[in-house]
Design a protein around this nucleic acid. Structure first.
Lengths: 195, 195
DNA sequence: TGACAAAACGACCGATCGTTCTATTCTGAG
DNA sequence: CTCAGAATAGAACGATCGGTCGTTTTGTCA
């Protein structure tokens, strides 16, 4: 890896942490530059525009999400065990892994009607994630863990709702019962998908 | 109502619409001024700071939410019918009523770790809304519509998740099935709260 | 109608935004 | 060791940010 590419990766790593705190919209070249100890122009030379930087930060987040959430889940047995670890990993993702909150949830609110490459890429990553959930649920159906007539896209929809609600209750409302509520709701979703 | 109070209300009305589009964080004095056809300084004279403006916009949103969602629901019979209209009104709130999306959902992502009066006020309004849901569910228990051992705060948590997921699916992903998914999920939540 | 207060304006502040340019320093292959 | 190209720094651009100021217009009420 060339020197430039190494620096670029270091920038994107810091940019992801910063994005977790202030959101993709609040991401600023000046603040990011002083966080990576570089001049603003030196940093900027690695990206064609701020929009490209934002898009690449999303890609960085997606790659890290695969590493810490998707990949560990895929090592678990097919079906329900895999889905359970997927859910647990996802809960940690927006709290312990990225202490500033899930960047996708934040970006979903900021870019839901702001056309451009950032929004397009965000949609792509979200569909990938939700597709992974839906696919895992389908496998659980095949394994006999879930009932045969389960709408797996509906399953992904409801699980996504639980995850976002958890983040709101935990990070904004500071509700100490949030993690318990998330687990209860998830158990209910599993039950409903089983019988 | 004095002239000043009248323009102040006009400003806040436009500010709410603008906030729905760009978020509380994206709200800008310059843009807002030209939208209400006023000079920036003339507009600014009505507020002590931008933070106060943001806080007052949240209050304006909450008042409008009561008018178009809460109040109509309270006119329905106690229990399940009331909750159903509450849910339906909430679905419309972030799509037809405020075409730029629910400002509370957007602000929840932006201000979840930005201390200040805006965050505090946002938390207050959200707790009010969720409290209304929980209280309505409690009434439904008393009416015998819901089972006696229902955790009504848990009910509010799960309903909130459905609402946010609906907004993401509809506004960001553009999923034409989003409204159907929301209804299916809500029906499932009602079923689970009944038996 | 006249007088006083409320309201709106235009100009301006320092700071920061994303971006561009040129000049300098560094790095790695021959 | 050399030297071309890559990498970074620095200064500056116009635009916009939230906010302040003194002045002018407008509304209110005796």
């Amino acid at each position: 890896m060339s020197k430039g590419e190494a620096t670029r990766q270091a920038i994107l790593g810091q940019a992801l942490d910063l994005t977790s705190e202030v959101g993709l919209e609040g991401l600023t070249l000046g603040v990011l530059a002083q966080r990576v100890q570089m001049s603003k122009s030196g940093l900027y030379a690695h990206f064609a525009s701020k929009e490209v930087l934002q898009r690449d930060v999303l890609d960085t987040a997606a790659a890290r999400f695969v590493d810490v959430v998707i990949a560990p889940a895929l090592k678990r047995p097919r079906g329900l065990p895999r889905i359970e670890l997927l859910f647990e990993g996802w809960l940690r993702w927006g709290t312990e892994e990225l202490t500033g909150g899930c960047p996708f949830v934040a970006a979903a609110a900021d870019f839901d009607d702001r056309p451009g490459m950032v929004r397009d890429r965000l949609i792509g990553h979200l569909k990938d994630m939700l597709g992974t959930v839906s696919r895992s649920a389908r496998i659980a159906v095949e394994e006999g863990h879930f009932r045969a007539d389960l709408d797996t896209d509906q399953f992904a929809y409801e699980m996504w709702g639980l995850l976002v609600a958890y983040q709101h209750y935990r990070r904004l409302l500071g509700d100490p019962a949030s993690i318990r509520r998330a687990h209860i709701a998830f158990r209910g979703l599993i039950d409903h998908s089983t019988r």
